[in-house]
Every structure is written in structure tokens, then in C-alpha cells.
């Protein structure tokens, strides 16, 4: 298949960027989207031109490194799929494909399609843990947890921190990301003790980092490659209100 790419090129956060066009011919529809970009980059290197910078690592949809906008959607057109798991068969011959970085004030552009998502780490640092030192733990089976709760907590904890939720949100809110971590720990007895401070501190950090407000539009869950649901946000709100009582 042949494709026409328009890619956002930007040298750094301090410099202006713009769209550049590239055409690739005879692309095997069974290769992954990132393998298609590898082909483009090898071509650019051979022409002594600067290759397109993008983040990626595991290429199995779990590390959360990859992620950019494809035709206006985070991670592209396929539901519950990270860019690295997207294949060219999701596109048609002669398609025009537009690639841009995730756009959010809290995610400054590093270069081209690569953005800085360290704000997420700062949200976690402000409370996304159980305060237990190594060696202080009780025997594991002394804390029985209902299977449903453990499964539910797992689903929240499956968030990969890719930032698609922020990029999908019209307000660039990090509510889904924060709510997933708050939920994961709120659902488990281990996380209960610090529940109040956790939600207050994490929400405060989220605001300090410049993420926008949540208006429950749900675009975040719709675009989330791990299908983190809206119930997480409801649970965060409940935890937040509970902390005030």
C-alpha cells in the first residue's frame, strides 16, 4: 500500500514547529505503524536528513512510552490499542495520515512527536503509594481480599500512564490517570489508611501541574488504550468528598 504522511516536526519546546509531508510506497499492510515509521526514518537517515523523533520502547502496548495523535485521535483509530500495537492494515491504500504530538500545556514537546510526561510521575509521588518500608510487611495471606475487589483494583492499576486521556480531553485534564491510581488503592485494604491524604494531595498536584478540570465528558475513557473506565473518576470524586467529611 502507499500512504501520504503529514508529520509535525519541531526541534524543541522553544522553537516553532510545523507540518511536513512524506510519501511512502509499497508498505506491507501487516507491519506495525511504528515499523512504518522505522522505514521512513531509515530513508531519512540515508538522505542525511533528521529522522522523526518519537517515543516507543516495549512495542507490546504495556510500557506506555508510545503515543501521539493519528488523524486527531490519541493512538489512532483502533479501539483499546496503543500506537505500537496498531498495524498498517487499519489504513487504506493512499490514505492521508496526520501525526501530531499529544497536545497539552503540561506535556511540553521534547522534539517532533515526543513529549515530556514527567508531570504524571509528580502526581504519583504526591500520594500514589502505600507507605510501607521494605521488610515491614505482614504474611501475604493474612490480608484476604475478595476476588471481585482484587480484580477491580487490577483493572484500575492496568493504566500504563501513556497520557492519551490528557490528549483526548478538551481541558487537558489528568483526571482519569489520577483516578485510576486513587481507585486502585482505595479498593484495597492496604490503601485505606492513607486514603484521605492521598486523594487530596494527588488532586492538588494535578492542579499545580496545570492539568485542566474534569467535566465528565468521557473522551478519556473512550480513547484509553487500556479501557480505564469512568467509574474510576466517580470513585475519585467519592474519595475526595469523603476526605472533607
Amino acid at each position: 500500500m502507499n500512504i501520504n504522511l503529514k508529520i509535525w516536526r519541531q526541534k524543541s519546546d522553544h522553537q516553532d514547529g510545523g507540518l511536513r509531508s512524506y510519501r511512502l510506497e509499497n508498505i506491507d499492510p501487516n507491519i506495525s505503524f511504528l515499523e512504518m515509521l522505522d522505514i521512513l526514518n531509515i530513508k531519512l537517515v540515508k538522505e542525511k536528513k533528521d529522522p522523526v523523533a518519537f517515543d516507543h520502547d516495549c512495542r507490546e502496548g504495556i510500557c506506555g512510552s508510545c503515543g501521539f495523535m493519528i488523524n486527531g485521535r490519541p493512538h489512532g483509530p483502533q479501539k483499546a490499542t496503543t500506537v505500537c500495537q496498531l498495524h498498517m492494515r487499519a489504513f487504506n491504500n493512499e490514505d492521508n495520515i496526520l501525526l501530531e504530538p499529544f497536545r497539552a500545556e503540561s506535556f511540553p514537546v521534547i522534539k517532533d512527536l515526543s513529549v515530556d510526561r514527567k508531570a504524571f510521575d509528580r502526581i504519583i509521588s504526591s500520594g500514589g503509594y502505600v507507605a510501607v518500608d521494605t521488610g515491614d510487611a505482614l504474611e501475604a495471606n493474612s490480608i484476604p481480599i475478595a476476588k471481585e475487589d482484587a480484580d477491580e483494583a487490577f483493572l484500575s492499576s492496568a493504566c500504563i500512564g501513556c497520557g492519551a486521556c490528557v490528549a483526548a480531553c478538551k481541558n487537558s485534564s489528568a483526571m482519569l490517570f489520577t483516578a485510576a491510581k486513587v481507585s486502585h488503592l482505595a479498593l484495597l485494604p492496604q490503601g485505606e489508611k492513607e486514603g484521605k491524604e492521598r486523594v487530596v494531595n494527588m488532586v492538588a498536584t494535578m492542579d499545580e501541574e496545570g492539568f485542566g478540570a474534569c467535566t465528565n465528558t468521557g473522551a478519556c475513557s473512550a480513547e484509553c488504550p487500556k479501557e480505564i473506565g469512568q467509574t474510576n473518576i466517580a470513585r475519585l470524586n467519592r474519595e475526595f468528598i469523603k476526605s472533607k467529611i
Binding site: V130, G135, E139, I143, K147, A150, F154, Q190, G191
Partner: peptide
């Protein structure tokens, strides 16, 4: 054995049986 204890204490959501045990 200590590793499992530590991870459970941190809130790692391991798979569980219906009785609530690991």
C-alpha cells in the same frame, strides 16, 4: 516468600481465589 509479602503490602493486585486468598 518475603517478596510476595512485600508486594501485597504495597497493594499489588495479585490474582485471588474466591475465598480471598492468593
Amino acid at each position: 516468600k518475603n517478596i510476595i509479602d512485600q508486594c501485597v503490602a504495597q497493594g499489588v493486585p495479585f490474582a485471588r481465589e474466591y475465598g480471598g486468598l492468593l
